[in-house]
Design a protein around this nucleic acid. Sequence first.
DNA 1: CATATATTTGAAATTGAAAATCAAGAACAT
DNA 2: ATGTTCTTGATTTTCAATTTCAAATATATG
Lengths: 145, 145
Amino acid sequence: MILEKKKAFNAFAAAKGLRSTRQRDIILDFFLSTRQHVSVEELYLKIKASHPGIGHATVYRTLKLFTEAGLAREILLNDGQTRYEHVSAGEHHDHLVCTGCNAIIEFEDETIEKLQKEIALLHGFMIKSHKLELYGLCAACRANQ
Amino acid sequence: MILEKKKAFNAFAAAKGLRSTRQRDIILDFFLSTRQHVSVEELYLKIKASHPGIGHATVYRTLKLFTEAGLAREILLNDGQTRYEHVSAGEHHDHLVCTGCNAIIEFEDETIEKLQKEIALLHGFMIKSHKLELYGLCAACRANQ
DNA sequence: CATATATTTGAAATTGAAAATCAAGAACAT
DNA sequence: ATGTTCTTGATTTTCAATTTCAAATATATG
Ligand SMILES: [Mn+2]
Ligand SMILES: [Mn+2]
Ligand SMILES: [Zn+2]
Ligand SMILES: [Zn+2]
């Protein structure tokens, strides 16, 4: 699975005429071995520990490349930090975001997805993407109130 | 309707022990007479034309006050500009956002709202707010492609 | 292998929105 | 009127993200 994603990125890079660099390999390794919804700064710091030479700009640039390659998705929550999550082909989900502990829970709802398409149709809109986030308190944080 | 909102803000200000200032009156007038989904910068520039003395900081602060007072709602789309829209009591809607012409179309869908509550319940989550945005091309922009 | 060329990197500077600072000005209770 | 407290707005600061550009590196070619 990790290997497949590496292959997918190599294919993308080859098709785009991008060069193969040590930095992109390292950043991809770290991204693929990191839990979901990692912020750029988090990933940068994790990488820096063992590869102090790698710079901020490269991490930012490379995550944008992963997004373009279809390996990653940008998530903009309401805290001013861009996060990235792993993309698996054909899969889509939305997010419950806990404002207490910052946990992010994923969910899928086919009915909501279908209703969104109907709304778009009704307005003559062609949807390219959507964002559905439910903000609140997770079970654990509710218990601690 | 505009008068009611002014009264509502005055009540809020009184309850909070806020002073009545010329600036807040002006900003409220402009906000209430502006179309939906205005960005802070847009509103600031509009006000500045006839009231050059009013500063950025005051516009930012005052829109936050309106939000607290329940007259306005912050909207964070994906362009790094905070927008504010009018809030009418008991009303809620979500947004279709055209990435071609930046138009914002409002919609309501009771079924989606209900499904969101069910999802939250299923995960033991207590929802405080949510965000649903459909990004794509509006009918006009599709025609111009 | 050498060498030319084009891409990539990373430190540093820049950007842009938003928030913080703080002295001067304004509102309000007395 | 006067003193106290709040508010304002020019300016500075913050912070994520992007841009810049000289040096480093990848790769194509002989
Ligand atoms: Mn996710
Ligand atoms: Mn709206
Ligand atoms: Zn939580
Ligand atoms: Zn449009």
